[in-house]
Design a protein around this nucleic acid. Structure first.
Lengths: 265, 265
DNA sequence: CAGTGGTCTAGACCACACT
DNA sequence: GTGTGGTCTAGACCACTGC
């Protein structure tokens, strides 16, 4: 219990300034951060796909030549960022939008009364889906060049028969080659789940800017409301790994029976 | 390096099912969670006040008779919840609203152009501040009984001379005995900082419900806008330790030059 | 039962801040 | 230098899952 026999003096932080797997360390960063970066690379490269299990902590520790605790800390952070999901006794899994109980992970609109989104699945109606050239504004949001090919989708979501959300969204043309209105209409599930399974694009993070606005004539018609009904304007940019923007979305939310919920801490 | 001499066999999880400082363990919970609970108690009781340093990890480990790593994990979670702030080389401090660079920690309204809230401090204008009896609705939100004494405050916040936020807020009468319009007007700083220093009430967490609305006549007058200008309605309930609600706030945000920013992950 | 993540300990050393 | 939080290791045992 006393007089430690432990000698390492090497394993400790001595390795932190060295290399992990052959990569040099330009500026100092903790070992577990480097491991986190390597795991991130494997996620981006598709070595481990959404829904799949990644190697066990022991395996990863052996692979990267570090202790289990160091791998654990790296995974902890990735789990905190919702990139990985830990399941005791089973393993660690790549997070996915294609799970029944995590549907609508980025949708913050809640019914005023009912508990969760247990008001039944939303009825989706694809209004439009076409390719066009990016305006300067859209190009900037998606980190493209003006005139690059983008896909534009317009749809309406209804709850209990009541049109509640009108969304316009723009996707970069190249990664989403082959996406059509039919594919979208046929797919029953979260749109981000389709992006994952069909195009290998996983949305990891998003930022929203919210305003109060009045609809124009066409918007009011699609939502079947008057032009004087105030709506929530929700502009979202969604990012994949490495903060690469992959979607610009402009939503109009009807908030007479629903509200946008946010928790601050 | 091999043939470990370490025997503990006790220190490990053996202690996890036992007691920490004399408290029984009804259902199983990890040691570090129990430590977290004990630290939380010290925070609530005021043993360590906002802005102050708590004892070092080593001291706490000795106090609770656990290893430093266990204390560390408890503190990690409390820091993740923004109840504590770690500062390398200096210590761990109780989080506070009374710090210049953490001003407006719960305000998500951002100017469309400028970077942060560096558009100068908002001009605050207390319109009203009076005691009254809680309606059923307000009592429910604040976990009071209908008719209990509550304090109602109405104020306008302006940025660059432009009225932008109209807020009504209700506070339970008992904890905020002695709060007057003068105290509010004289205080230059975040309202939650005043609550901390003057009333010992620290807001820890909040939930917001957001809608798009049109102002009534008096609201439009105070914000100097037309009745047809859509506004963001932000209803907030703020909680102290232990999920006790301590404030109901209804804000109307003008979103022509500002937006409500939210990050999803 | 074996395998996985989860908890706990003990000890070493590093990075940072104050004095 | 001393003290604080931060990183890293090694090893033990617990809790959960599924064969």
């Amino acid at each position: 219990m006393t007089s430690s026999p432990t000698p390492p003096s090497d394993g400790a932080a001595g390795a932190a300034e060295g290399t992990v797997i052959g990569l040099p360390t330009p500026a100092f960063s903790p070992l577990y951060q480097q491991i986190k970066g390597l795991i991130l690379q494997s996620l981006q490269s598709g070595e481990w796909k959404p829904g799949e299990a990644i190697p066990s902590e022991m395996d990863l520790a052996a692979r990267y030549r570090v202790s289990q605790g160091t791998v654990r800390k790296a995974i902890d952070e990735l789990a905190a960022e919702n990139l990985l999901v830990r399941r005791q006794g089973k393993g660690t899994f790549v997070a996915t939008h294609a799970e029944t109980h995590v549907q609508y992970r980025f949708l913050r609109l809640m019914p005023d009364a009912g508990d969760i989104q247990s008001e039944g699945p939303a009825e989706r109606d694809i209004i439009d889906c076409k390719r066009l050239r990016a305006t300067a504004e859209i190009a900037r949001a998606l980190a493209l060049r003006t005139g690059d090919s983008v896909l534009q989708v317009r749809r309406v979501l209804a709850f209990a028969g009541r049109p509640t959300i009108l969304e316009d969204l723009w996707l970069p043309g190249t990664p989403f080659k082959g996406l059509t209105a039919e594919r979208l209409s046929d797919y029953h599930g979260a749109m981000y789940a389709l992006f994952e399974t069909e195009f290998g694009v996983r949305m990891v993070r998003a930022e929203e800017k919210i305003r109060a606005v009045l609809p124009d004539a066409s918007q009011a018609a699609l939502l079947k409301i008057s032009k004087s009904t105030p709506l929530l304007s929700v502009e979202r940019i969604a990012y994949t790994y490495n903060d690469v923007p992959m979607e610009l979305r402009r939503g109009l939310y009807l908030t007479d029976t629903h509200h946008y919920r946010n928790v601050l801490s």
